[in-house]
Write a protein that binds this DNA or RNA. Structure first.
Lengths: 310, 310
DNA sequence: GTTCCGCATGAATCGATAG
DNA sequence: ACTATCGATTCATGCGGAA
């Protein structure tokens, strides 16, 4: 995997040049301290394991924790009313190990309980703010193909939250890495430009919004929005991977660079690790259930083969 | 306006037959009591005006209140930190006037303040539960065309919440009224949903029962999910309608029948009233700003003309 | 009557500058 | 220090008039 080399001009828009330089040194120093955790899948309680991980050493935490579940026997069956107090000691460790310019992405969705949406995710979001996190953004994962089903008073649930939390306002973000093709409208729209298009036009509604269409000529890509429209993965082998590899991959590309250190404290079958392997990031996977590690290693071995072949 | 008459079998799936019968009587009785409010646009504070509206008289409340705003001079400029205490006395009246089997749909989205999403919507949701509401569901309005813009640490905001609250678990819901063609869904990544489907559905609802059944080609329709993919309305000179008429129309079809009584306590330019007119529902519009009533009446007059012409 | 094309619009947000 | 104002940035749609 080749390193991207010197930062190109576009990325300097995102944060200050000096910070960029300091980041590189910082990354290398920390990797020295975290060697024993690099690209490991550890079995255990993430709260305890993370105590050995140094402060400010992780670039991105992206995870999909076990959702609250009143059924006792399932993996991670934490009752909804206990979810917040179960989660907060772990997120305290997350806050400690995350770099100041790092990001924490929490993929979660509240369940229906007694005909109501349970408020534990709202409570958790508010409590995480009290713990010191900034609630920077809420992305929506809009699922292309949802589980079929019909209920008398409810439609299929086709979305999940991806809550973004940060330690500081100056988190790193590489927007150019997730640009998408421009819509078909542009072909017709930009073919002929009017006079107002060529000079800057200002809206007369007082919104302060102006545009200069001429700047768009030749543009093939645009920035995405905060809604991700992805399919769930289905028909795969043994694991019941609830989220598609594109979901962590998107956040990994957006918030990290090649060689950065990504943590998934509820790793499950290792979807986040697969994304890291494909993108050349280092990872630390942790899960309390011992059974998933084998599945994750099996999946990762296929990834390695693919990489070698290409 | 024709009344739909006897309920067809499909709708009996949604709630019990006895309740259906009681509903009809109840609707008629209450309409007797609320005659003075039928199809009115009243100027004033909804909290005060609603005190004259009888208990349990409204079938659906669908509204998009002014969002919190830190700027002082704009209309509806409620500071985020005061939003909950501003809203709760009003929602207490909503709870009183809503029928036990009615629904309250709240379209809202938190703003960014100081680089963070402000938590007032989360606080409000939790407080509404304490007030006695059931938080039944959260629909997502995924906006096709979002406001443009670029920031170093944030993408364009392409979604809003449509929170569903109820008084009881036995709310009425007519799922068959919002079914969508299966072909368009799979073929075009949700793209063709709004225009063809909704205009077809609208004309169907306006023109009576038999025609609609004729258009139903059996298995070609499928139930939607809890994500609505609609465009904002733009390019209209006279009014700046913040939400598209399809949004309230969708909830009106889902939660009410012909002749039911719909309340929008923050009516603005009357988008909800337009949807009611098209679908043959009665409405009560309230807004504290006097300027919008004229715009709403202008829009409604066009609706009337269209109806007469067809 | 239908399709095509031009055009204005939008619940935005950040950072710099001014008071 | 703290707040108010202003400029810069950006995408996709629906409408109305023209072909």
């Amino acid at each position: 995997m080749e390193y991207a080399g010197a930062a190109d001009a576009a990325h300097l828009n995102n944060y200050k040049f000096m910070e960029q330089l300091l980041l590189s040194e910082d990354t290398m120093a920390k990797h020295g301290q975290t060697d024993e955790f690099i690209n490991q899948y550890l079995i255990g309680d993430c709260e305890k394991i993370l105590r050995s991980v140094p402060d400010n050493s992780v670039d991105l935490i992206v995870t999909s924790p076990p959702y609250a579940d009143s059924r006792k026997n399932t993996y991670g069956g934490i009752p909804p009313e206990k979810y917040v107090s179960w989660f907060l000691p772990k997120s305290k460790e997350f806050l400690r190990v995350l770099k100041p310019n790092g990001t924490f992405i929490l993929n979660i969705k509240e369940r229906v309980e007694g005909g109501e949406r349970h408020p534990y995710v709202l409570d958790l979001t508010l409590e995480l703010r009290k713990q010191g996190w900034l609630w920077t953004e809420e992305f929506i994962w809009h699922k292309k193909n949802t589980h079929p089903g019909k209920w008398p008073n409810r439609f299929r649930d086709a979305w999940e939250r991806c809550l973004q939390f940060n330690k500081t306002k100056n988190f790193k973000m590489f927007q150019d890495e997730v640009m998408i093709p421009i819509g078909d409208w542009s072909k017709a729209r930009l073919r002929n430009l009017s006079k107002t298009d060529l000079s800057r036009a200002t809206s007369n509604s007082g919104s302060g919004f102006g545009k200069k269409i001429a700047n768009w000529i030749g543009k093939t890509k645009v920035y995405p929005s905060n809604v991700l429209y992805l399919a769930t993965e289905c028909g795969n082998q043994n694991h019941s991977a609830v989220f598609p590899v594109e979901l962590p991959a998107w956040f990994i590309r957006l918030f990290t660079r090649n060689g950065d250190f990504v943590l998934d404290p509820f790793a499950g079958s290792g979807t986040t690790a697969v994304a890291c392997r494909r993108l050349g990031r280092n990872y630390l996977m942790i899960d309390i259930a011992p059974g998933y590690k084998k599945i994750a290693e099996e999946r990762l071995s296929h990834e390695t083969n693919k990489t070698n072949r290409s």
